[in-house]
Design a binder for these strands. Structure first.
Length: 881
DNA sequence: TCAATCACG
DNA sequence: ACGTACGTGATTGAT
């Protein structure tokens, strides 16, 4: 069998990968999607081709011989976006690290190098595979030279293969004729001029008839479409030039030997370091020797023996530092991981719930560690609190929260991620070890893997203390971590544990009432539409409304017609069926998400215990899940009624307090704008005051419209103002919106400077900060894409405001919760909705609690404007708001 | 698993 | 010129 060589068109494949794959960055913000895609295609090709030789060709920046022939050549080519450009030198380094031969030569393009090597290989009796995204290469195809063109669509890559025969089948032309084809039809991306008025169809027809451009010209009078005949007559010289330009050089002077290009082991130590740096975890699996095991794993053990467990755990209780992980799944305790020691000498043990190691025993031991060890670290302290009590809050260290503060943009803070980022260690993720198998199942089938995974969690928690603390210190977030986020974790746990009582029966009734009307609407809609269809399917609904019923309103989404509420709102007055659909949507939303949805979460205690997540949002807010209690309807009366089923327990009453325009007040403070600060000290109604000042009318003569507009501008400012956004919101022209904004900035001169400053800061530092030092990275500001960059600008303006407001209510929550405990009050904080706190108050405590709540909320931060709250009591959440 | 929709601040 | 308001989570239908 003859040997085989794979030749790769470097830039072309990099390009394909870049545009075919979603954006991807590593911890340093380096874009990596093109590199990743390139390597994936490379490995896949090598696997499939089973080749002995490999060479990658790159273009050089310098002009090529083609430029000398034709000055416009590649003259107007679009510049490479920065996100791609920065990846070019990296892929060359990575390939070098893998020992791959790279060829490039000034004066020639990669195509020419590939052409030359392909012919050389063929001459040496090899099979040649050329990998490129560029169809120009097809001219090289022969019996022994195969062109592979990968296509990436939506992350999936398919490859088209062409040998000489394949080209003929696909194009009806021989490979050399591909040159003629390109010369005739031109190629705008390469600035090959081509013949005006001749496209692929005509060009192919001409070539089928006459073979070459020269022969066609010899018979030019016979050429059929008159347009093509005249064009070829007139532009024959151009065609000949194009042909030369399009012809790939197959005899470039190259200093090249096949022996050097012989494939060796690609997975070198150097390459391993690169992949680690680039965070190509999937690719790292290919390293057999290097990745086999971390040294750490040599000190992992599974312990089931009681005396052995006792020995290890009593050491833990006396340790300066311990790392722990309570293995919980669906509320069931499956085991405990504990790590002890320092640096290379860390040892970790996994104790499954089994035999003498009962759940109770392990929980007691865990409590003992948290009490005894100088510092106890875990990647999820809050989760442990559902099973154990911790008195000394300040001894705990939550590595997950620390990692979140350091980069709040990540979707998860898993042990393998934290290990990679802060310990410089590649460790197998839960998924790598167990795949989709649950820990519970894993305990039976994959004992070893569960042990490793759980030990790593304890290990990373422990080993992470130092680097994470250092990083927090360096970023100025250590006190934010220690004094806000760590204490908050305990407050959130208390809220989760408290839960909120929900009247199941009444919720059911509410659902039934909705159901009646839903059924009515359903038949009315079917009748008006003239057929039955799934009203909940935007796709089907779009067809019914905009095709069958011919309602005005074109496409909007990428998949078809938009049927979103703001589109339908405009149609509703003229088409009763649209109004019915809107009502139907509203009711089914209420039923499925709230009536039925919430009912599923009512526990045996008659209460709903939502999760309050502390490490989700980019700005520092908390989020609520399973169920989300932060989006219970309130704006529409019908939905608001749901709040009547949220009730306080026997002997209690609800006390609800929400901050009045906290974000605008934060803006006033942070910007230092005297006029806005003054406005707050004078007026109850800030929107009216804004309207009065912006539109230059006396306060008490502000019209409703003016007030509404001013309110929208206020919102817009907080969101990172844009005239487009405001114009959409107010249904006015962009020009008018721009005028409003200009007036606003004139009225409050420091606001503009402040917002511009935030954007500038974001650009310079790569992040923006809240009043309390919380950071939000804004990588989008560096994007070459206008839309993304604009988004980054809005984010830079919004995050410090939204984030500072989030900080403030967090402080209030911690203090309220602590005050309640200190005074031995039974009242509990049960919900937070961004600017609102809901407390379940024992009636006899109401007066005292009201005072505490008001004081702690108002004094949570000392701003240039006062913090004001609205406070209400009620027998249910509906009444208390 | 993703896109569309809609509930909240 | 580009085409958008900021931050979330749950449900549904389509792939």
């Amino acid at each position: 069998m003859s040997e085989k060589i794979v030749l790769i068109d470097g830039h072309s494949i990099l390009n394909r990968a870049f545009y075919g794959l979603p954006d991807l960055t590593n911890a340093e913000g380096l874009h990596t999607n093109a590199i990743y895609g390139f390597l994936t295609i490379l490995f896949k090709t090598l696997e499939e081709e089973n080749a002995q030789y490999l060479t990658v060709a790159f273009d050089e920046h310098a002009p090529t011989f083609r430029h000398n022939m034709y000055e416009a050549y590649k003259g107007t080519r679009k510049p490479m976006p920065q996100e791609l450009r920065e990846q070019v030198p990296i892929i060359r380094d990575v390939l070098e690290a893998m020992g791959v031969t790279i060829v490039s030569r000034e004066g020639y393009e990669a195509d020419d190098i590939l052409g030359t090597l392909a012919r050389k290989g063929e001459a040496a009796g090899m099979e040649v595979t050329v990998l490129s995204g560029d169809r120009d290469l097809l001219q090289l195809a022969t019996e022994h030279v195969k062109i592979r063109i990968p296509k990436t669509r939506g992350g999936k890559t398919t490859v088209e293969d062409y040998d000489g025969r394949g080209v003929l089948e696909a194009y009806q032309l021989t490979p050399p004729q591909i040159i003629e084809l390109k010369a005739l039809m031109g190629d705008s991306s390469d600035n090959i001029p081509g013949i005006p008025g001749v496209g692929e169809k005509t060009a192919t027809k001409i070539l089928l008839e006459y073979g070459t451009i020269e022969n066609a010209y010899a018979h030019v009078e016979e050429i059929k479409p008159n347009k093509a005949k005249e064009s070829l007559k007139e532009h024959y010289d151009l065609a000949k030039l194009s042909k030369e330009l399009a012809t790939i050089c197959t005899d470039c002077p190259l200093d090249y030997s096949f022996e050097e290009a012989r494939l060796k082991d690609l997975f070198t130590q150097e390459a391993y370091e690169w992949f680690k740096e680039l965070e190509f975890k999937n690719l790292l699996n290919r390293f057999e020797n290097t990745s086999s095991k971390n040294k750490a794993e040599e000190h992992f053990q599974r312990v089931t023996d009681l005396s052995q467990a006792d020995a290890f755990l009593s050491k833990a209780k006396k340790a300066d530092r311990a790392g722990v992980h309570l293995l919980l799944e669906k509320g069931e305790v499956l085991g405990l991981g504990v790590a002890l020691g320092e640096k290379e000498k860390i040892e970790a043990a996994f104790f499954p719930v089994e035999g003498f190691l009962t759940e109770r025993y392990l929980l007691e031991q865990l409590e003992g560690i948290c009490r005894g060890a100088g510092q106890t670290a875990s990647l999820n302290v809050k989760e442990m609190l559902s099973r154990i009590q911790i008195e000394e809050h300040s001894r705990m260290f939550d590595g997950g929260i620390a990692a979140y503060l350091l980069n709040p943009l990540k979707s998860a803070y898993t042990y393998d991620d934290i290990a990679k980022e802060y310990l410089g260690l590649m460790v197998p993720a839960r998924e790598d070890l167990l795949g989709k198998v649950s820990y519970k199942k894993g305990l039976e089938e994959k004992e070893e893997e569960v042990t490793v995974s759980c030990c790593y969690m304890a290990y990373v928690a422990l080993a992470g203390i130092e680097p994470l603390t250092k990083a927090l210190e360096e970023t100025g977030m250590l006190s934010l971590f220690r004094e806000m986020e760590m204490p908050l974790l305990f407050t959130l746990h208390d809220m989760e544990a408290a839960g909120i009582q929900v009247e199941g029966e009444e919720l059911k009734e509410y659902g039934s009432r909705l159901e009646v009307r839903i059924k009515e609407l359903e038949s009315i809609i079917y009748q008006k539409a003239g057929e039955e269809f799934n009203i909940n399917s935007p796709k089907q609904l779009g067809v019914i409304l905009f095709e069958k019923m011919q309602l005005p309103g074109g496409k909007k989404t990428k998949t078809g017609y938009s049927t979103a509420a703001d589109v339908l709102d405009k149609l509703a007055p003229d088409h009763s069926v649209v109004a019915d659909i809107l009502e139907y949507r509203q009711l089914t939303k209420l039923k499925s998400t709230y009536a039925d949805g919430l009912a599923n979460y009512i526990g045996e205690d008659g209460r709903i215990h939502s999760n309050f997540n502390q490490t989700i949002t980019a700005t520092g807010r908390i989020s609520s899940t399973e169920p989300n209690l932060q989006n219970i309807p309130v704006r529409m009366e019908l939905g608001r009624l749901i709040r009547k089923v949220f009730v306080p327990r026997e002997g209690c009453i609800f006390l609800d307090a929400d901050y009045s325009q906290i974000e605008l007040r934060v803006l006033a403070h942070m910007s230092g704008d005297e006029k806005l600060i003054q406005a707050y000290s004078e007026a109850q109604d800030i929107h009216r005051m804004t309207a009065s000042q912006v539109f230059h009318v006396p306060f008490d003569q502000v019209t409703d419209l003016q007030r509404r507009n001013a309110k929208a501008v206020n919102f817009g400012i907080v969101y990172g103002i844009s005239s487009f956004g405001l114009s959409q919101d107010l249904s006015i022209t962009r020009k008018e919106a721009a005028q409003y904004i200009e007036n606003y900035f004139e009225t409050y001169p420091k606001i503009k400077g402040f917002l511009d400053g935030l954007v500038k800061q974001g650009k310079e530092q790569g992040y923006v900060t809240t009043l309390f030092g919380r950071r939000r990275p804004v990588p989008e500001l560096k994007s070459s894409n206008f839309m993304q960059r604009s988004f980054g600008e809005r984010v830079a303006m919004n995050a410090p405001i939204q984030g500072t407001a989030a900080d403030i209510i967090k402080i209030a929550m911690i203090r309220v919760n602590e005050a309640l405990k200190e005074r031995k009050l039974e009242t509990k904080l049960i919900l937070q909705v961004h600017d609102e706190l809901l407390l379940e108050v024992y009636e006899e405590e109401l007066e005292e609690v009201s005072r505490i709540l008001e004081k702690e909320m108002k004094q949570a931060a000392d701003l240039a404007v006062s913090l004001e709250i609205d406070m209400h009591t009620g027998r249910n959440w509906y009444e208390a708001k």
